[in-house]
Structures are given as structure tokens and as C-alpha cells.
Simulated assay, not measured.
Amino acid sequence: MSVALNILIALAVLALILTRQLRRRPVREEQPYRIMLVLGVVGLVETVQFHQHHDVSTSAWALLVASLAVGAGFGALRGMTVHVWREAGTLYRQGNVATLVLWIVGLGLHLSVDLLIKRVDADAAGLSNTAILLYLAITLGAQQALVLERAQHLAAEA
């Protein structure tokens, strides 16, 4: 898949994610990581395909892994900003402006990693952009984990 098409797909997924983040929505407590798994598998396949066509240095891989770790951190931070509550036995969540700001900053950092990768390994330019779906899977998974953890505390308090 071309980098441009990958970015277009990621932007469509991101638009869907951001609009859903700000709406009051029930949390899937059964199979809560299904969408993250799908995004992760597709992102991993695309990243492997990128590697098959480019000679990626260890430094470029290290920068990508660092960006994915930062994405997990931003996901955890967003998970703390999301309002979580139970209503009639159903768990709900709704993000806010802070959630949105953390999304924008986290994505900006991930995408800017490609500039660093290009400086240390010109042949690996585009690696971070190609791994955007993998990034989304990891950052969403971390956010979901925090939301579910916070929901456990709601149940204990009730």
C-alpha cells in the first residue's frame, strides 16, 4: 500500500475516532480491544511490507519504537481525561477538550518522528507514517485500558 493511501486511510480512521471520542458512548466491556487488534494487525502488516521494500536501520526502528511508546503514554493520559460513569448498569465514557488536545499533540509527535527518521536514515523516510495504524492501535489500547481500570474503581465504590 502506498504511503499516501495509508495516510488517507489513517486520516479517515482518525476522523472517526476523534468524533467518537467527544460523544457520550457506551464502553464495550466484552471484547474491548477488538478494533485495536484489527488496527494493530493491519498496521503491523503495512510496517513489515515497508521493511521488505526499504533497508531500515536500527536507529530508525528505535525512533519508531520510541514513538509507539510515547503513543501509549499519551493514550494513558487521555484515558485519565475521559469522563467515565455507569448508568443503569452500562458503562459510559466521553472525552473532552483535554482529550482532543492530547490526541493532536500525540499524533503530531508521532508524525514528526518521520522527520527524525529521514535525518538518520533517508531510506526509511515514511516508516512512521506507514506505521500510523499501529500507532493508533497502541494509543487507543492504552486509553481503553485506563478507562476500564477506572471503571473497576467505579464498581468498587458502588
Rank of each mutant, 00 (worst) to 15 (best):
M1I: 12
V3I: 14
V3K: 11
L5K: 12
L5H: 13
N6W: 06
N6P: 05
L8N: 09
A10K: 04
L16R: 15
R20N: 15
R20D: 14
Q21G: 01
L22I: 13
R25Q: 15
R25T: 15
E30Q: 14
E30H: 14
R34G: 11
I35W: 13
I35L: 15
I35C: 09
V38R: 11
L39N: 04
L39S: 01
V42T: 09
V42I: 15
L44P: 02
V45D: 06
V45I: 15
E46Q: 15
H53N: 10
H53C: 05
V56I: 09
S57T: 08
T58F: 09
S59M: 10
S59A: 14
L64D: 00
L64A: 00
A69R: 08
G71W: 02
G71Q: 02
A72V: 09
G73L: 04
F74V: 04
A76S: 07
L77T: 04
R78H: 02
M80W: 08
V82L: 04
H83A: 10
V84P: 00
R86V: 08
G89A: 03
G89H: 01
T90E: 06
Q94F: 01
Q94D: 01
G95F: 03
N96Q: 11
V97G: 07
A98T: 12
T99I: 02
L100Y: 05
H110C: 06
D114T: 07
L116F: 12
D121Y: 07
D123V: 12
A125L: 09
G126P: 00
S128I: 11
T130V: 12
I132M: 13
L134V: 05
Y135Q: 06
A137Q: 04
I138L: 14
I138N: 00
T139A: 05
L140H: 07
A142N: 05
L146T: 08
L146G: 04
V147C: 03
Q152M: 12
H153S: 10
A155R: 13
A155I: 15
A156F: 13
E157Q: 14
A158I: 11
